[in-house]
Design a protein around this nucleic acid. Structure first.
Lengths: 96, 96
DNA sequence: CACAAAAGTAAGCTATTGCTTACTTTCAAG
DNA sequence: CTTGAAAGTAAGCAATAGCTTACTTTTGTG
C-alpha cells in the first residue's frame, strides 16, 4: 500500500479513472452512483481544473478513496499560539 | 506527524485556516499569494462546498500542505486487469 | 467483420462561482 | 477606552460549471 501524492487536477483524474476501472464501473455507473452526469465524470477524469470540491470529495468516497494530510502535531497542544508565531505575527503587524 | 483524513469541505477549511494561522498569515496575505480574493479565503475556510478544485490545490501547495491517498499496489504490475475484475466487467456487459 | 456497450464530442441553457467595492464587527495592544 | 488590522457581510456582475440531449468514435467479443 503505497502513498500517492495528489497535487493537480490531473492527478485526481487519473486516480479516479484508475479506481473506477479497478472496480469495474463504467463512467455512467459512477455518474449515477454519484448523482452527477456522465459528462462530469469524463471531464474530471481529464483533469478539469475548476470542478467543484464537493463532487470530487463525493467521488472519492464513492470509490472508497481517502485524502490524507500530515498534521504537524499542532492539534490540541498548541491551542495557544506558539511564542514564535506570536513574534511573527507581531512583526507583520508592525511592518506597514 | 499524525495523518489527518480529509473528507469534507469543512475539513479542508479547517485545515487551511489552521495552517494559515500557524504560518502567521492573514486572509489577505494568503489571498494575494494565491492570486485570489480575500473573500474566497473566507469562504473556503468556512467549508464552501463548490469551491473550485484548482484553487483548493493551489492553496494547499501555497501552505505547504499535501494530499495523499493509498494506492492499492495497482501501479504497474496490474496493467492487465485482474481476472476477477475481468469477470465482473464481463458480467456487467451481459446483464442487460 | 458485426454488434453493443462505453467513451468522447458538441451545443445550448440556467445556476453558481469568484470577483470588486464598500461597510461593519471583532480582536489585540498600548 | 482608543485605534488599526483582521475578519466578516453584502450587493451586483461577468465568466463558467454542470446539466440534458443527441450524435460519433472506440473498444472488446463472438
Amino acid at each position: 500500500m503505497v502513498k500517492i501524492i495528489v497535487r493537480t487536477p490531473q492527478d485526481i483524474g487519473a486516480l479516479i479513472r484508475a479506481r473506477r476501472r479497478s472496480l469495474g464501473l463504467s463512467q455512467a455507473d459512477l455518474a449515477s452512483k454519484l448523482g452527477t452526469s456522465r459528462l462530469w465524470i469524463m471531464e474530471i477524469e481529464r483533469g478539469k481544473p475548476r470542478a467543484s470540491l464537493i463532487l470530487v470529495l463525493q467521488a472519492m468516497s464513492t470509490l472508497d478513496l481517502e485524502f490524507m494530510t500530515d498534521d504537524e502535531g499542532r492539534s490540541a497542544k498548541a491551542a495557544q499560539t506558539t511564542s514564535r508565531d506570536a513574534v511573527m505575527s507581531e512583526m507583520r503587524r508592525r511592518s506597514k
